[in-house]
């Protein structure tokens, strides 16, 4: 087990090698957050109302800031890229040579990068913009705790979905932009751009039932107190169910991939 902690640590340290990236990322993230907030300000000004669909502008700004924090520290395209590359170049053989689980190694690695980006990029950006625009506190201490739990779940889900896409790339064996497809799905169905309460029906209902909803929408909605206590527990269970399903998918695809590598030589 200590090996996986060491991987997380080393991936944290590896990131330090690219210090210039930090500033570029902070800048990029700031622009993104400013743009999102500006869109909501314009939208609310356009409607001329203080509360739309039961949500105030202040809540919407909080939602936009949180969205950046929750999803900002994971880079699905990097996970997909890393899996795809090591499968295609055959570097994955190196992982097969070690007494290790490759998926668990990837997860440990991602945990390290997540903490690094959280500490150096996401939290500074969100804190800065929050000072600028003002950010609401969690709806209650219970909601705060549940937000943290959902955040962790969101991280695990996003990792599993990305790993699944990365493994699928092994069979397609083309430069097919799976990362682009996942990016598009996330933009729309995670709720990072627009919360589902502004979606038209039946799109809103569909979106609420897709696993992507647990990545941004549910954590944020819980922070803002939009879900009742029984609903929170229900959705925690559902989210864990999705995570278990994706975990099974990843492990199954990994077994298929590794048996194909060992039988057919990749």
């Amino acid at each position: 087990m200590s090996a996986y902690f060491a991987f997380a640590r080393s991936s944290f340290h590896s990131q330090l090698a690219y210090r210039n990236e930090v500033w570029a990322n902070i800048f990029g993230k700031l622009v993104q957050v400013f743009a999102r907030v500006a869109i909501w300000q314009a939208a609310y000004a356009g409607v001329g109302a203080i509360v739309v669909e039961g949500v105030s502008l202040q809540q919407m700004v909080t939602y936009a800031l949180l969205g950046g924090a929750v999803m900002g520290a994971t880079r699905p395209e990097r996970i997909i890229g890393e899996i795809g590359r090591s499968l295609k170049t055959g570097d994955v053989a190196i992982w097969l040579l070690k007494p290790l689980s490759y998926p668990l190694y990837l997860f440990a690695n991602e945990c390290g990068s997540f903490l690094y980006r959280l500490a150096t990029q996401v939290i500074p950006t969100v804190a800065f913009t929050a000072l600028f625009y003002g950010m609401l506190p969690p709806a209650s201490p219970f909601h705060a705790v549940m937000f943290i739990a959902f955040w962790a779940l969101s991280f695990a889900l996003l990792f599993l979905i990305s790993a699944l896409f990365g493994l699928v790339a092994f069979w397609l064996m083309t430069s097919f932009s799976l990362d682009w497809i996942l990016g598009a799905l996330l933009q729309l169905f995670s709720g990072v751009l627009v919360p589902f309460w502004f979606f038209p029906e039946p799109l809103a209902t569909i979106a609420r039932h897709l696993p992507f909803a647990w990545i941004v929408y549910y954590p944020n909605a819980i922070y803002l107190g939009r879900l009742s206590t029984p609903e929170i527990w229900l959705h925690l269970g559902l989210g864990l169910g999705w995570a278990a399903l994706f975990l099974a998918g990843v492990l199954w695809l990994w077994r298929c991939a590794s048996s194909r590598i060992t039988v057919q030589g990749g």
Partner: peptide, 15 residues
């Protein structure tokens, strides 16, 4: 690749 050489060795020790 991105770590000091000795870190690769300590990772190997853990593995």
């Amino acid at each position: 690749w991105d770590l000091p050489l000795v870190d690769s060795f300590t990772l190997h020790q853990r593995i």
